[in-house]
Design a protein around this nucleic acid. Structure first.
Length: 405
RNA sequence: GGGGAGGUACCCAAGCGGCCAACGGGAGCUGACUGUAGAUCAGCUGGCGGAACGCCUUCGGAGGUUCGAAUCCUUCCCUCCCCA
């Protein structure tokens, strides 16, 4: 156990937290001096972490470093009935092999941030899957429809007369029961999890356990600046994204997101961030430079200083100076696709995977988006292909043709 | 159980017998410009096609009426509202 006193622990833990319910309770738990069990519920469909997920994981890591125990609850059972975002569908149950395989994936992914030695991974099908219908009814009797409908998501859909399936109402209860099942002392989550996590508190109290403390971390807006970061919305920066991509994605952020990103995704001291913010407002700091710093910081955090510098140089070359990237992927093209050493440009683009269909390839050409060896292609004609031909689509998609037999 | 309103392309949403591959917005793509993949402006955004107002496949599913349907009819599936 750590030597850090409860007061200091609390101080450290609440930094970056949007809300702690409640600090007094957390302090009391910490003061007992035994390791606490920290719960984090995870969606089984997103084993691919992005830097938004990372925020709450960093918080969990912090708990671990203070000597506490992390329990990742994979919602494989709740995942079966779809999560109540409105559009989710029910999914077929995972086989034991799939569960095992996923468990490994989770461990691999999460150990990028967490301390594997202090992390336990459990699946909620373990207990939810064993419940009899009678148990479900008893569980459901612990709350009321009105209570559940308070959840803003349900409330909104109810008001808008959008469908709400009965089983969706059970969803928060299932998650709440997870807390009971593992006797959580603290549950972490994004602010969107507030309702569910509070439900956990209530259910624990109802079932004779000491209520968990709920600690909420901010939700990171995605690249679009509107919706929260999510892989399925395609607005995410994955923590395993290659350096160049990571750097570039950060550079494409709306300017207004720079400060929130600095705060949530970097280790830059708060004072310094405030200075940058002031500079941006006053005009002393160029937004481009602030964003470059941000891109550098984030890339360095996941790939190291060297890779970050390199990504920056590459970015400048390709986008600022409009030069070719340092590394251009080779794409194989079987020689038999050529006729007399030539091929229709449209077909070439499709063959190389630079266009999804012939129509799209034609569009790209007519819009002036295609270059061969640096020269813009004006129209779709037969072009002679030699090994090493450089094909470019748009500003950032390059391919080097490798002829194969 | 009774009555009413709906299901349109990645999302939202027009269309309600031919001019519809289907208005508009969002998202995406390309170009210009630039501070970057940001902002702004412009064009494009089903597929096939050696440049077409040519052909093929789309408007919940399956049939039908018609020279011709996303638009009309039948039936099935799904959602919402009101009443019971």
């Amino acid at each position: 156990m750590t030597t850090v006193g409860p007061g200091a622990q609390l101080e450290a833990l609440r930094r970056g937290a949007v809300e702690v319910i409640s600090e007094e309770e957390l302090l009391a738990k910490l003061a007992r001096g035994r390791p606490l069990r920290i719960k984090l519920g995870l969606d089984p469909t997103a084993p691919d972490l992005h830097i938004g997920n990372a925020i709450v994981l960093q918080k969990l890591r912090q708990f671990q470093d203070l000597g506490h125990e992390a329990v990742l609850v994979i919602g494989d059972f709740t995942g079966l009935i779809g999560d109540p975002s409105g559009k989710a569908e029910t999914r077929p149950a995972l086989s034991p092999e799939e569960v095992e395989r996923n468990a490994r994936t989770y461990r691999d992914q999460y150990s990028l941030i967490l301390d594997p030695a202090r992390t336990r991974v459990v699946f909620n099908s373990e207990w939810l899957g064993k419940m009899k219908f009678y148990d479900v009814i008893k569980l459901a009797s612990r709350t009321t429809v009105h209570r559940i409908l308070e959840r803003d998501d349900f409330a909104r859909r109810y008001a808008d007369r959008l469908p709400i399936h009965l089983h969706e109402l059970l969803y928060p209860l299932c998650q709440a029961y997870d807390s009971v099942a593992i006797s959580a002392d603290v549950e972490l989550g994004g602010t969107d999890q507030k309702f569910n996590n509070l439900m956990g508190r209530e259910l624990q109290r109802e079932m004779g356990q000491e209520p968990q403390v709920v600690l909420l971390t901010p939700l990171l807006p995605g690249l679009d600046g509107v919706q929260k970061m999510s892989k399925s919305l395609g607005n995410a920066i994955g923590i395993t994204d290659p350096p160049n991509e990571m750097y570039g994605k950060v550079m494409s952020l709306p300017d207004g997101l720079m400060i929130p990103y600095f705060e949530s995704c970097t280790l830059v001291p708060l004072g310094e961030i405030r200075e940058i913010a002031r500079g941006l407002v006053a005009g002393g700091v160029h937004p481009r430079d602030a964003k470059k710093r941000l891109a550098r910081e984030i890339t360095a955090r996941y790939h190291g200083e060297a890779a970050s510098r390199k990504a920056e140089a590459e970015f400048e070359r390709v986008f600022a100076a409009r030069e070719r990237p340092e590394e251009i992927p080779d794409v194989e093209l079987p020689r038999d696709r050529l006729k007399g050493g030539a091929i229709r440009l449209v077909r070439l683009l499709v063959e190389l995977g630079l266009a999804d269909s012939n129509s799209e390839a034609r569009r790209l050409i007519s819009q002036g988006g295609v270059s061969l060896d640096g020269a813009r292609a004006a129209q779709d004609t037969d072009i002679g292909v030699r090994d090493g031909l450089l094909v470019q689509v748009g500003r950032r998609r390059f391919a080097r043709v490798r002829l194969t037999e």
